[in-house]
Write a protein that binds this DNA or RNA. Structure first.
Length: 260
DNA sequence: ATGGTTGGTAGCCAA
């Protein structure tokens, strides 16, 4: 079972790359972020033609998440509970049946949070992380294989940035941000990429600006967190870095976890 | 180097 997460930075601008990647990488389940379209604008037919079921939680212009799956969806839930006022499309959960039992997969797009001086930005990020932590604690009680995959907009540790000193005033690297991710992880989740290597250079994002890709000035902010039951099925994890060198790339690359 | 680039939009904003 290959589960991938990829912030594609606009599905309409990235449809050729997305089709190429699906054919190439063959994920069983692909979690997408920043589709930047309403549900009706998602290029559903092109993806379904490749044998995927498609579920989206879209929004006009920005945000928007989706799950593509070769398995049929038993259940789909849209939106992170905990704030009825929050209209941003950043969360979708799918449930699947596998030979090992139920598998829950979330595609999440955690708020960027910059600048840290604005409550409507950084405060929103921290409140969203608190909601996610509380939601995850509840879900863990099901004792099912659960994968929380997505663009967390969190650099967990200094080794997850090529130049950590450039990020000290950024919302992605604040002590409060990193603490909130750790609080989520300490519920009992395994960071799939961190589980296979302590080396840096498992970056998932390189800015379009200032030649960041050419200089390998990247950060690791796209993560797959595995519940204990998912960790029991865990085989390997990797970054599909070559995708960043394609024509008209997203600024993120896919991160992948293999489960039994 | 307070710059630089991209996508969606028609608000230059969000990243």
């Amino acid at each position: 079972m290959k589960i991938a997460t990829w912030n594609i930075n606009g599905v309409k601008a990235r449809i050729d790359n997305l089709v190429h990647w699906l054919n190439d990488s063959q994920p069983d389940i692909a979690c997408l972020q920043e589709i930047k379209t309403v549900d009706e604008g998602f290029p559903r037919a092109e993806i379904e033609a490749l044998g995927y079921h498609v579920e989206t939680h879209g929004q006009k212009g920005f945000n928007g998440v989706a799950i593509l799956s070769k398995l049929r969806f038993d259940e789909v839930n849209r939106g992170l509970p905990g704030d009825d006022e929050d209209e941003q499309a950043r969360f979708i959960e799918g449930v699947f049946s596998t030979p090992h039992g139920a598998l829950r997969v979330v595609s999440l797009y955690l708020p960027n949070g910059n600048p840290i001086t604005e409550d409507r930005k950084y405060g929103y990020k921290l409140r969203w992380m608190d909601r996610l932590q509380r939601w995850a604690a509840e879900r863990l009680e099901l004792e099912e294989a659960l994968v929380l995959a997505g663009d967390y907009n969190v650099i967990p540790q200094p080794i997850d940035a090529r130049r950590p000193e450039e990020w000290v005033n950024d919302a992605l690297f604040q002590p409060e941000t990193r603490g909130a991710l750790r609080k989520l992880e300490y519920l009992g989740f395994t960071d799939a990429i961190r589980a296979v290597t302590d080396a840096g250079d498992t970056f998932t994002f390189w800015d379009y600006q200032a030649g960041a890709w050419q200089k390998n000035n990247g950060i690791r902010i796209d993560h797959l967190l595995l519940s204990p039951e998912a960790a029991n099925l865990f085989e390997s994890a990797s970054i599909e870095k070559h995708v960043r060198a394609w024509e008209k790339p997203s600024d993120h690359v896919p991160a992948v976890a293999m489960l039994r």
